[in-house]
Nucleic acid binder design. Structure first.
Length: 319
DNA sequence: CATCAGGGCCCTG
DNA sequence: CAGGGCCCTGAT
């Protein structure tokens, strides 16, 4: 596979809506690791496709200013630069205002710890809609280890190897690349029945049936409806999409079993409470912020995992 | 060795 | 609206 070297470099500054917590917003320890994104020395490395061209992006923070470096094959024009800047603002929720959440719940018995440790953390999605859909498909009905294995085998076959700023990583394949491949060839990568879903979604994007720009303008319920019309998107995937990708802080209609166990433990001290009960509880206690509340709880416990062993958490990860 | 659920969803009846 | 089936894999 050809290794694309991105050697031209420029830098932009990104303005954030305070309070903004850089590390906890741009990198999420609860997500499974892949070679699409790297977080090294407080710097995030990712790729981005704009108008058919591939760019390397680094994100870092210096004296409370967020810096993005853009790496490219040829010099970048100001229009593209602006597009990337706008896109980063959206993906990392740089203009979202969560100060009321932090003020209202800083003394809350459940959230005070997470808010103290990670206050200013926003939901974010490093990926385009298509890329994130690919991730949600990989997550379906399997374990973290296999999700990572499937992602990597897909990247090895169809992704683009990219080098910039001393790092090597993969860019997710383009929808057109998959549209040409047979379902059988995809299945040979041990992605199972997901091959069909990936082909269907790739086909929809190739034919221009999904409009990312318009989707982002929709109110929550309409966005949900539109997303559920995509083949392979059900209640679980749509909840990830509404919160992480579209940043609806109150998008909590559904909690997956593994998340329910974690949140149940963190709120009630045992894993037994069912998802529906927890959703009701969160809607009562954190109206307007129920999904963000879950996010603070889960990311906070995963962050603590790096520093100490949490047996009841390890039991649920099985990676 | 077999059986099963897993960071779901589609389809059928 | 409930329930079966689905690719594969590690756990039991």
């Amino acid at each position: 596979m050809e290794n694309i070297k991105l050697t031209k470099e420029c830098e932009i500054e990104l303005k954030t809506e305070a309070p903004f917590n850089f590390p906890d917003t741009i990198f999420k320890p609860s997500h499974y690791q892949s070679e699409i994104i790297k977080y090294v020395d407080n710097t995030l490395y990712q790729t981005m496709r704009v108008d058919g061209n591939l760019y390397g992006i680094t994100l870092s923070e210096l004296n409370d200013i967020m810096l993005a470096k853009i790496f490219s094959v040829t010099d970048i024009d100001s229009e593209t630069k602006q597009k990337i800047k706008d896109e980063l603002h959206i993906r990392y929720d740089l203009d979202g205002n969560i100060s009321n959440f932090l003020n209202d719940y800083k003394d809350d018995s459940v959230l005070s710890g997470p808010i103290e440790r990670r206050g200013g953390m926003h939901p974010s999605c490093s990926y385009s809609l298509y890329e994130f859909l690919m991730i949600t498909v990989m997550l379906q009905n399997t374990t973290v280890r296999r999700s990572a294995a499937m992602t990597n085998s897909m990247l090895e076959s169809f992704g683009n190897k990219v080098s910039f700023d001393g790092q090597d990583l993969f860019a997710v394949w383009k929808p057109e690349d998959i549209d040409k491949v047979s379902e059988e060839d995809l299945r040979n990568l041990r992605i199972g029945y997901r091959a069909k879903t990936i082909k269907r979604i790739s086909e929809a994007f190739t034919e221009g049936n999904i409009n990312e720009v318009e989707l982002r303008k929709l109110p929550k319920e309409q966005a949900k409806k539109a997303l559920l019309e995509i083949y392979g998107v059900g209640p679980q995937s749509v909840s990830y999409l509404l919160f992480e990708y579209l940043h609806f802080y109150d998008a909590l209609d559904h909690l997956s079993p593994w998340e329910s166990k974690l949140v149940s433990m963190l709120i009630f001290g045992d894993k037994s409470h069912p998802g529906e009960e927890i959703v009701e509880y969160l809607k009562q206690d954190y109206p307007g912020w129920e999904a963000l509340a879950v996010h603070y709880l889960i990311e906070d416990i995963f962050a603590q995992r790096k520093e100490k062993n949490i047996p009841w958490l390890e039991e649920e990860i099985r990676s």
